[in-house]
Design a protein around this nucleic acid. Structure first.
Lengths: 215, 215
DNA sequence: CCCAGGTAACCGTACGGTTAGCAAACTGAA
DNA sequence: TTCAGTTTGCTAACCGTACGGTTACCTGGG
């Protein structure tokens, strides 16, 4: 005997599932068209409901954007934690963090790295984001300093290096195509390898000349 | 005797100067707030005129954005031409192109790399942009292939490398601060060196650990 | 009966763009 | 030199519309 509750999702589960679907759709729309150009009517239509229905799940358009950022940074810190737990040199920790971050951002958030729309946040949300984002960037800079100290990363300006790395990563949302030839796995590995080569203290083995053939 | 025309700018010159000032202000506003969030009223106010005055210089807001992109790509092709004229290996040509592009984008366009707002272009303008931008990206990929062939650049996926490079470069608009400690010269040199290290076939000398102290 | 999930219709407003009109400045003929 | 006539640069006021958000109402399950 199988209880219905094990098969039929509860109301709360349904609610949460729809909430997540809405969030992903919003993230996708914000990334593709920009926050202001993506209308709630569009998003609702894609989900097969009317705009008013969305307000059962989110209090405002800005709340959607706020949550997109929150999720992205959550993924970032998760990557940091995993990398720290895994150990290794500063360089290895940096690589592990970036690879995880990239992979999750591409895959989980429906191919969306929304972090290009932070100027659309409400002022209050913006200062909140800044605090968390600065903490993330500081942590990355610390990994680079750690790598310089342990000899795995070439001496460089950690601030500039992190800016460069994050630029390359967030730019993925501009060119990645869910239905293209490049998989999320391939891209996150290949891009991490490229960035690794930029900061590695020791010469790096040759890179794949075609991403599709990479493991 | 000095002719007035040598001292007092002609009406045409005044017109052109104001046009350029408007373009720079628009580029700055688009970069800071995004295309949709930057209102013409805001831009006009910063220039000390009313919105209606702007229409003496540009037929529409979209025309402003279109011209921003046109200028940026002009700078890109100019950099390519200079680098080709200067000669050297594929790696050297790539570096020269990127350094020039970065420097001009930061300096000339009033610290603005607007190329993050292409989804705000009108459909017709967008396909036009795509054509020119693809030509630019193809040219950069060719430089990388040239470098791989002549042994100056490590074998890698040229497409991914160019995406990564352009991401890092265009991201500058997100963090560069005109009144900050880093000069346009320092940033364009240091960032080019970092990206060079990523693709260079041979090990690169140590990088400056603080951009302000770099030459 | 109550409440979650949804719809249709509506409201307010911000903003791109237009229009009418004015003042200064150039132009050219007398 | 002057002075009408035209052009340019600009303002104030307005229009249309797209869109975020709200309200009133319907439906079906617990």
């Amino acid at each position: 005997m199988t209880a219905w509750s094990a098969v039929v999702p509860s109301r709360d589960e349904l609610h949460e599932a729809k909430r997540v679907a809405l969030l992903r759709e919003a993230a996708s729309a914000f990334t593709r068209k920009g926050f202001h150009a993506a209308s709630l009517d569009d998003i609702a239509q894609k989900l097969g409901v009317t705009k008013a229905a969305l307000y059962h799940y989110f209090p405002s358009k800005h709340a959607l954007l706020r949550e997109c950022f929150a999720r992205a940074l959550e993924v970032g810190f998760q990557g940091l934690a995993r990398a720290r737990a895994q150990g290794g040199s500063g360089r290895e920790k940096l690589n592990n963090t970036l690879r995880f971050y990239l992979h999750e951002m591409i895959d989980e958030l429906s191919c969306c790295v929304v972090l290009t729309e932070e100027n659309a946040l409400l002022p209050d949300d913006y200062v909140d984001l800044l605090k968390v984002r600065d903490r993330f960037e500081r942590a990355l800079r610390d990994l680079i300093r750690e790598g310089i100290a342990d000899g795995s990363i070439v001496p460089c300006d950690p601030k500039l290096a992190v800016f460069t790395i994050l630029g390359a990563i967030h730019w993925v949302s501009k060119w990645f195509n869910q239905s293209g030839a490049w998989s999320a796995d391939a891209v996150s590995t290949a891009l991490t390898d490229l960035l690794d080569r930029m900061v590695s203290a020791t010469p790096v083995a040759a890179l794949p000349t075609d991403i599709r053939t990479a493991t």
